[in-house]
Write a protein that binds this DNA or RNA. Structure first.
Length: 310
DNA sequence: ATACACGCCTGCTGGC
DNA sequence: TGCCAGCAGGCGTGTA
């Protein structure tokens, strides 16, 4: 399941191929992948055909491509989504191909972008762009000039900035933790507080700072919340560095899911295995219809402000 | 406002 | 061998 690092790898791979490209044809193979497209503004195909792509931008796990029309093509990969850059005549396993864009790029010629999504949790949509509240760029991209620069798709506007965004406010993150009575892992997964973190990197960051995911967020001292945020950044950057090395710049097989297996994970998926730090057998526990992974010795629930003990 | 349950989805795995 | 429950889990929506 792609989280921030995987989506950034997709964005970075896509950007050079789609920036400046003209959409020449659109094929909708699976209408359910357009669940988040508001058809009252026009049909998906019609809003894209003949339109130029200006850039590839990302905030958290959301990815969008500003268009010459002033709108944006927004994508979320969900659990199993991929955006694959292919040659126009690519043939192969198309069982899970949901959407297909034919592009004409001034330098690279004809290209094809396939939205492939086995579970159909992901989606694509053409959405309108709104100005950002703080006037800062809406998300991360290499290109920073254009009408779209300080804007965000309507359906992404409620998502907080991610921890790698220069405009992310560390102070507001700390305040949000201090206000919440729920477990710190829930808060990490709340995309309205901080975006880009999913189950895997939440578990990894919590392990790194020896925190129990059910530790009430409000019991963390400022110092502890700072340590947690630093750990989150470190985990995301490490994954990004590892995931970003394995794709070909020309024809990117931008695979959000496969990158995970090359990462060295300390907590996620390690139930029954020794904690890399202390050797204690790690456990898996039910959490919000999924699982949490932790070391029962390093990551204990602490009473009150004792959460400061590392 | 915050918190939590639920539905959406497919394919793989393990138990009986 | 075949069937089915369980699991993977982000996000929008609905309810309290």
């Amino acid at each position: 399941m792609p989280e921030l690092p995987e989506v950034e790898v997709v964005r970075a791979g896509l950007a050079p191929a789609v920036t400046g490209a003209l959409v020449t044809a659109v094929e909708v193979l699976e209408p359910r992948s357009l669940r988040r497209h508001d058809a009252t503004s026009g049909a998906f195909e019609a809003l894209l055909t003949g339109v130029r792509i200006e850039a590839a931008v990302r905030r958290g796990k959301f990815l969008w491509m500003p268009l010459s029309t002033g709108r944006a093509l927004v994508g979320h990969l969900g659990m199993s989504g991929q955006l694959l850059l292919r040659t126009p005549d690519h043939a192969g396993d198309d069982r899970h191909a949901r959407l297909r864009l034919q592009l004409e790029h001034p330098q690279h010629g004809e290209l094809r972008v396939d939205f492939v999504d086995q579970r159909i949790f992901g989606s694509m949509a053409v959405d309108r762009l709104l100005p950002t509240e703080d006037g800062a760029p809406g998300g991360f991209s290499a290109e920073v000039t254009g009408e779209w620069a300080a804007s965000i798709p309507a359906q992404v506007a409620h998502i907080a900035r991610d921890p790698l965004d220069p405009a992310f406010s560390d102070a507001r993150f700390a305040e949000a933790l201090a206000r919440r009575g729920s477990g710190v892992k829930r808060v990490l997964l709340d995309q309205g507080v901080v975006s880009g973190i999913g189950n895997i990197y939440a578990d990894e960051a919590l392990w790194a700072v020896r925190l129990h995911g059910e530790q009430p967020a409000s019991t963390l001292t400022r110092r502890r919340s700072r340590e947690l945020l630093n750990a989150v950044r470190k985990v995301l950057e490490k994954a990004l560095a590892e995931g970003g090395t394995s794709f070909d710049a020309q024809y990117v097989n931008v695979n959000g899911a496969s990158g995970y297996f090359s990462h060295s994970l300390n907590a996620y998926g390690r139930a029954g295995k020794p904690c890399p730090r202390c050797g204690t057998t790690m456990v898996r526990e039910p959490f919000m219809n999924r699982s949490s992974h932790r070391c029962p010795r390093c990551q204990r629930l602490r009473m009150s402000r004792a959460a400061t003990i590392a």
